[in-house]
Computed example of a mutant assay.
Amino acid sequence: MRVIAGSARSLRLKTLDGPDVRPTTDRIKETLFNMIHNDIYGCRFLDVFAGSGAIGIEALSRGADSCYFVDESAQAAKCIEENLIFTKLKDRAVILRSDASAAIKRLSSSDLQFDIVFMDPPYKTGAEVKVLEALSESGIIHTDSLIIVEADLKTEFTYLSDLGFEIIREKKYKTNKHVFISLEQERK
């Protein structure tokens, strides 16, 4: 796995091992960032279920002002830190070793707001529902924030309206999809 573009272009990142690890492939990562490239520069990025940190590091490499990485695994936090040091992007990053919903609640007590929230939760666990609920109750997103969920193709998002969100775009791949979510228009 490598950084696709920007200041850390072509640098190979460390990855996590394990049967439940599914790093986003370089091809899917490149497609994702081609879709959001106009929103990256100068943004505040939140990478939830960050794993190796590859998505947030890509955002930093492409000019995001800052990135907060959230993962409850000690192994993931260590991997993210090593990748940030290697790419020389650590000075614009914060690593939160925490449960995703708890991290969002903790961030809510600050004045921080994120322009882009990316999450790649474990598939078929409903973890994305809990995080979206936490986001809807938090103050860390604003009217123009973009939330991107990487999910299994069969994952349903029919509950979004109940949380005040709507799907603005969906990109399907062979085995998964990216769902682009924002606050409902009438709530903006």
Rank of each mutant, 00 (worst) to 15 (best):
Asn34Gly: 08
Thr25Met: 11
Glu170Asn: 12
Thr175Phe: 13
Ser108Asn: 15
Val149Ser: 07
Phe33Trp: 08
Lys29Gln: 02
Met1Ser: 14
Val48Gly: 00
Glu150Asp: 05
Ser52Cys: 04
Arg12Ala: 12
Asp39Cys: 02
Asp71Val: 02
Asn34His: 06
Asn34Cys: 06
Ser98Tyr: 05
Asp71His: 01
Ile95Thr: 08
Arg169His: 13
Arg44Gly: 07
Ile85Tyr: 08
Leu32Gln: 03
Glu133Ile: 13
Ala127Phe: 11
Gly6Gln: 01
Phe157Thr: 06
Leu32Glu: 06
Thr155Leu: 06
Gly139Thr: 14
Thr175Ser: 15
Leu112Asp: 05
Glu170Ser: 13
Pro122Arg: 06
Asp65Gln: 12
Cys43Phe: 02
Ala74Gly: 08
Met35Ala: 12
Glu58Ala: 00
Cys79Tyr: 04
Arg187Gly: 02
Thr87Ile: 06
Thr15Ser: 15
Pro122Asn: 08
Tyr41Arg: 14
Ser101Lys: 15
Leu163His: 08
Ile28Met: 12
Asp144Ile: 01
Ala100Asn: 03
Ala54Pro: 03
Ile95Gly: 02
His142Arg: 07
Asp111Asn: 15
Gly42Asn: 05
Gly164Trp: 10
Gly18Met: 07
Leu96Ser: 01
Glu137Ala: 13
Thr143Tyr: 07
Asp91Val: 08
Thr125Ile: 03
Ala54Gly: 02
Val117Ser: 03
Leu160Phe: 08
Val131Cys: 06
Asp47Arg: 00
Leu160Val: 12
Ser61Pro: 07
Arg97Asp: 05
Ile36Cys: 03
Asp26Ile: 04
Pro19Met: 07
Ile85Phe: 11
Ala102Ser: 13
Arg22Gln: 08
Thr158Met: 11
Tyr173Met: 15
Val94Cys: 13
Ile104Thr: 12
